[in-house]
């Protein structure tokens, strides 16, 4: 009995150890890595947006599914936001419109998954493709929608570039989303039921809970969280580029599943996901600073994800939990 529990302890801390090792490595090798300005830039540029998308993904995976259309939700939110601001609507209203645009994607997924009963992978893959086509139709074949720099309202810039008490706004939003997601998943009835759905959906159904309703709510929530990224992204770069949100997809999946190695039962969890995103962000930034060829950075990141997954899964297998 002693060995399995030792192995499972190892699996659990592989992620923390990897993060610490990578951090120490770059602190020693990459000049300027430890400076306050750089660490802040890691958080704002490499961490904040991906963390929100990965948290959304964590919800979907927790409930036993997956959402390949998180990028589509980001895009729809971004498109609605830019269009409404261009049309002269107040920024607050436009932001609400953006969130609604993202939620629309979730609603579509909810109908497919909870209503018809399609497997989440296929349903959201279909949504991804349909969403890409819709965006191209809306933008004359995929032209970016620019906001004229002169006409950008102050409140709009605040979301992407502003700061409160010296803390950049994107970081504050990320912290709120992470904290909110943690509270919902770990401390609320809805969170517990969603987790139960992921572990044993049939038990949820036999317990008399309305499984389709829970699943539908989960996917709408996932897309709405992803939509927050659309707002921040748009106000940072003041442009909407069709289908650009898909860039987050694979890293979000990677971070979520890297995070599962942090949980004793190998389940997706908010702290694990945050650590996973942090690991990806630190590696991306550290490789950049260490002067390594830009193209080797992707190889390095891939190898690192691979190693963490290999250690995590191998240990879990040793502990007899696969």
């Amino acid at each position: 009995m002693a060995l399995p529990s030792f192995a499972h302890g190892l699996a659990r801390y592989a992620l923390v150890a990897a993060l610490a090792a990578v951090f120490a490595l770059f602190a020693a090798l990459a000049p300027g890595f430890l400076s306050g300005a750089n660490l802040l830039s890691v958080l704002v540029n490499n961490f904040a947006l991906l963390a929100i998308v990965a948290i959304a993904m964590t919800f979907a995976v927790s409930a036993g599914g997956i959402d390949l259309s998180v990028g589509t939700a980001v895009d729809f939110s971004s498109f609605a936001f830019v269009s409404l601001v261009l049309a002269g609507q107040p920024v607050a209203l436009a932001a609400l419109g953006g969130l609604a645009g993202g939620a629309l994607v979730g609603l579509f997924n909810a109908v497919l998954i909870a209503g018809i009963g399609i497997s989440p992978f296929l349903a959201t893959l279909g949504t991804l493709f349909v969403g890409r086509s819709v965006q191209q139709l809306l933008t004359n074949g995929g032209n970016p929608v620019y906001l004229p720099p002169a006409g950008v309202p102050e409140a709009f810039r605040f979301l992407g570039h502003g700061a409160l008490a010296g803390i950049p706004v994107p970081l504050i939003v990320t912290a709120l989303v992470v904290a909110g997601a943690w509270v919902v998943l770990a401390r609320t009835r809805f969170g517990r039921v969603a987790l139960a759905t992921g572990i044993q959906a049939s038990v949820v159904r036999y317990s008399g809970l309305r499984l389709p309703r829970i699943t539908a709510a989960t996917y709408v929530l996932v897309s709405t969280i992803a939509a927050v990224v659309g707002l921040i992204l748009t106000s940072t770069v003041t442009v909407y580029i069709p289908s650009s949100g898909n860039a987050f997809l694979l890293n979000a999946i990677g971070a979520t599943f890297i995070g599962t190695t942090f949980d004793p039962h190998g389940r997706p969890n908010v702290p694990g996901t945050v650590l996973g995103v942090l690991l990806l962000g630190v590696v991306a930034n550290g490789l950049l600073l260490s002067g390594l060829n830009f193209y080797w950075q992707q190889v390095g990141t891939g190898l690192l994800i691979f190693s963490v997954l290999a250690i995590g899964f191998a240990n879990r297998k040793a502990a007899g939990r696969v």
Partner: peptide, 14 residues
């Protein structure tokens, strides 16, 4: 427009 193809593909699979 060939941009419709990805939409048709998505709809088909759904």
């Amino acid at each position: 427009s060939s941009t419709l193809v990805s939409g048709v593909q998505g709809l088909l699979i759904l």
